[in-house]
Design a protein around this nucleic acid. Structure first.
Lengths: 330, 330
DNA sequence: CTGTTAGCGCCTTCAT
DNA sequence: ATGAAGGCGCTAACAG
């Protein structure tokens, strides 16, 4: 017979057990442990002693049931395998800790994106999270707006139209503009820009639009090319005369680098994670992703703690990373 | 005045509200919604109707409080910014969905690793998770073993010594051996191997040990070099006569590639995520990380559902990815 | 098949 | 400063 099943798992101690051990009432225990209300130093000491001795861990469920606040933030991420979401998650976690909140994350396994996402949202609501942070990518606003009656929501990664929802994002259009100008400043004129459909990804689309505008403003000649998905970027054949190709993501840039000739310059967009390695020297635009995560948490917690109760949009700025994959022309 | 605060958030509906709306008792509602126990089709229909109409979402806390099971798995990850953990998380999430469990993830923001980890573990226990999956890296076993009295634990990413804990890992020593042989088979003889101290990371250490053994077994001459951390791999200067350098991680390999001359061959270890891009063509060993995540969930859920109650260690196998950064010699 | 009843562990008035 | 008592939303006996 196996060890665990032969061993009755000891009943986990509750405040009642501590109360008994400390020789006080359970209300005294509650007050002492919460550190609020009046408790004599003596009582507090004995309670804390007993709690430690019994290895007491408060039951967040019971606590949440009565106080209707769990100090927990639910986070819905699209796909942590993408560094963007991983960094976002890391930023949120760090800030949540600082603000004394707990973060509970769900991430789509992949396939059925929006269906999964709403199931995850209800899951989190079921867990009685105090607020929700959604990093939606392709999730239409209409899918989560209904839940606003249940819980405050903050959107990370794009500007939210609904005025009851705060949001934080990097100005990716601006990033595209700056990066486009940079490429032109290096002497490139005819520049292919891989753009995606607005419905596929509003963020990626904005990057492309920015690049086109930036190139044009700097006197270059942008040549837009529709890209159904970054996965097929590798199949992109560069048109005649083009000296540089700008991609909506770093990973697309890697794919293009793989098939483009050595004389062609390539730029990406993101600038964090493994692809930021100096060896690659990717020319790109760095988004402040972790800061976005921190800001999202601040936006939400400020509201939860009623430090602020207006809804706003915070726009963060990134920076051009020159790299080496876009070389000067001539 | 702001919209939300001027709008009283509607009290969230409970089974009592549904019971009233459907004209039945709350137990009938509970049974109908849970789909267990006997309920007439008529009652079930009316309950489901009312629930949908009111936008009912069950309170997992109340439910967990009484049933003592939450169908929730707590996961402790070291740092999602590292693709290894991100992929692990993705694998777990996917499998948990399939098994009808919910996953709640915490990840260390960084700094105080073991201290953070135990706080996270108690957080999760406080949330009444049914089980814990720990991907510990540098967390000593003794830190989480005490919690075994509270909740079943599965370890992902290394073999666990305590026989009350199941674990799953990739055989990284074997991976090192295979990769070492591969490099030798390409004609390399004097091969530098960047090794780390066992205390820094047992996993990375095993990789290095495997490489040394594999090279030796294949007739090569391994030259071990201590590496305090992958971050300083870039400062590594290759000794005389060495034609190849083997690194404990892909990201270390990138750093080495950055400083090594073009004639030197470089191998990494991991083989997933952005660094697996064909453009880089990194020679490496691919670990089945997502599968590890899935297996960890299965190990835990099998136990929770009492499908199995022995504790075991599952060893998964990876594969050498030839790539282009290790070139044939001569 | 259905309703009634009794808690689950905790916080919070309300007395004392 | 402390204890007693009620109830949060839900499930699980137990009667009917």
């Amino acid at each position: 017979m196996d060890i665990i099943s032969g061993m009755t798992r000891p009943k986990t101690p509750t405040i009642v057990d501590i109360a008994a051990a400390a020789g006080v009432s359970k209300s005294a225990v509650s007050r002492a442990l919460l550190g609020q209300g009046d408790v004599s130093p003596e009582t507090r000491r004995r309670v804390e002693d007993a709690a430690k001795r019994l290895g007491y861990v408060a039951n967040a469920m019971a606590r949440g049931l009565v106080s209707a606040r769990t100090k927990t933030i639910g986070v819905v991420l699209r796909d942590v395998k993408k560094p963007y979401y991983a960094y976002l998650q890391a930023g949120m976690q760090a800030q949540a800790e600082r603000r004394d909140y707990r973060i509970v994350t769900t991430t789509n396994a992949g396939e059925a994106e929006i269906e999964d996402a709403i199931r995850e949202i209800t899951n989190l609501i079921s867990l009685q999270v105090d607020g929700l942070i959604i990093a939606p990518a392709r999730l239409p606003s209409s899918e989560y707006v209904p839940y606003l009656t249940r819980v405050p929501i903050v959107v990370a990664g794009r500007r939210e139209a609904d005025e009851r929802i705060s949001s934080v994002a990097c100005d990716e259009y601006e990033g595209g503009v700056l990066l486009g100008r940079h490429v032109v400043s290096l002497g490139h004129r005819d520049i292919a820009v891989l753009v995606v459909d607005e419905n596929y990804s509003a963020r990626y689309h904005a990057r492309g639009a920015g690049m086109l505008a930036g190139i044009r403003a700097a006197g270059g000649n942008p040549i837009p090319r529709m890209m159904p998905s970054d996965l097929v970027a590798a199949q992109f054949a560069s048109p005649e005369g083009v000296t540089a190709i700008m991609c909506p993501t770093d990973s697309a840039a890697m794919d293009v680098l793989d098939v483009a000739g050595p004389d062609i310059s390539v730029a990406g967009f993101d600038g964090y994670g493994p692809l930021a390695a100096p060896f690659i020297g990717l020319t790109t635009f760095r988004q402040p992703v972790e800061e976005m995560g921190r800001t999202a948490v601040d936006l939400l917690v400020d509201r939860l703690e009623e430090i602020s109760d207006d809804h706003r949009f915070v726009s963060l700025h990134g920076a051009v990373i020159p790299g080496r994959t876009v070389r000067p022309v001539g």
